[in-house]
C-alpha cells in the first residue's frame, strides 16, 4: 500500500505530508485504517449448504482465486470467521443451526446471502420445508442472485461488501457499541419454525394491492 492511499482520508496539503513522510510519519484516520485492514482480510466461514457451495469453493480455486481480494482464508470455525456466505437452500431443519453459527461469530461480522434459495427460497419456495430467505432471522449485507451464481459473481459480491466496509464508522460499529450481535435461535417444531421470523431484522412486506376496507360484494364479483 502506498502512503497516498493511507493519507487519502485526510485533508493534508502536499508539502506537510511529504515533510511528515520524510520524518517517517504517516497521518491517517483511524476509521480509514480500520476499514482498509478489515476490507482487505475478510475471512469467510467454510460453510456449504447446497449447490452454491460448490461455486463458492470454485471461487477459491486457481481460476477465480478469491485470494486476490484477501479472502482466501476459509475458516471452518465460526469463532475465527468474519463473513458467512449462506451458500444454498436453508431448510427449516437447518435454519436454527445457521442462526446459531451466526451467533458464534465475533464482531465485526457480515453475511452474504448467496443464491436464489438463500435470498427467498428460490425454486423450492413452494415446498413445505424450505425457509423463504435467511434474512428472516439474520441481517444480510449483500444479496447475490443466481442459481447458482457464477464464481465471478461471488467475487463481485465480495467487492460490494468491501465497499460497504469502507463506508463504516467506528462510532457506530456494532463491535464497539453493542458487543456481539446475537439473535434468538428459532425452534424447529417438526413442521415449521417458531417464531416464523425475527421482527428485529425482518418484517413482512406490505401488500401494495391490499385494500383495507373492501366491501364484501366486490370480492364475490371478483371470484365470479
Amino acid at each position: 500500500m502506498t502512503t497516498e492511499n493511507l493519507n487519502a482520508g485526510m485533508d493534508l496539503d502536499d508539502t506537510t505530508r511529504s515533510e511528515l513522510e520524510r520524518a517517517g510519519v504517516i497521518v491517517s484516520k483511524v476509521d480509514f485504517l480500520y476499514n482498509w485492514a478489515r476490507g482487505g482480510s475478510v475471512w469467510p466461514l467454510t460453510f456449504g449448504l447446497a449447490c452454491c457451495a460448490i461455486e463458492m469453493i470454485a471461487s477459491a480455486t486457481s481460476r477465480f482465486d478469491i485470494s486476490r481480494f484477501g479472502s482466501e482464508v476459509f475458516r471452518p470455525t465460526p469463532r475465527q470467521a468474519d463473513l458467512m456466505i449462506v451458500s444454498g437452500t436453508v431448510t427449516k431443519k437447518m435454519a436454527p443451526q445457521v442462526v446459531r453459527i451466526y451467533n458464534q461469530m465475533p464482531e465485526p461480522k457480515w453475511v452474504i446471502a448467496m443464491g436464489a434459495c438463500a435470498i427467498s427460497g428460490g425454486p423450492f419456495k413452494q415446498g413445505y420445508n424450505v425457509l423463504k430467505g435467511i434474512d428472516r432471522y439474520i441481517p444480510v449485507d449483500v444479496y447475490l442472485p443466481g442459481c447458482p451464481p457464477r464464481p465471478e459473481a461471488v467475487l463481485q459480491s465480495l467487492n460490494y461488501l468491501q465497499e460497504k466496509i469502507r463506508g463504516m464508522k467506528i462510532e457506530d460499529d456494532p463491535a464497539f457499541t453493542k458487543g456481539r450481535r446475537q439473535y434468538p435461535v428459532p425452534r424447529f417444531t417438526g413442521t415449521d419454525l417458531e417464531p416464523p421470523f425475527n421482527p428485529e431484522v425482518w418484517s413482512p412486506p406490505e401488500n401494495p394491492n391490499a385494500q383495507p376496507d373492501e366491501p364484501c360484494e366486490s370480492k364475490e364479483e371478483a371470484s365470479v
Binding site: L49, T91, N129
Partner: peptide, 22 residues
C-alpha cells in the same frame, strides 16, 4: 434431512418437463 427440499412432492405438482431443471 438438513437439505430436504421436497423435490418429489414438487415434481408431483408440475408437468413432466417442468421437473427437468429440478
Amino acid at each position: 434431512g438438513y437439505l430436504h427440499r421436497n423435490h418429489e412432492k414438487l415434481a408431483e405438482n408440475m408437468t413432466y418437463l417442468s421437473s427437468m431443471p429440478f
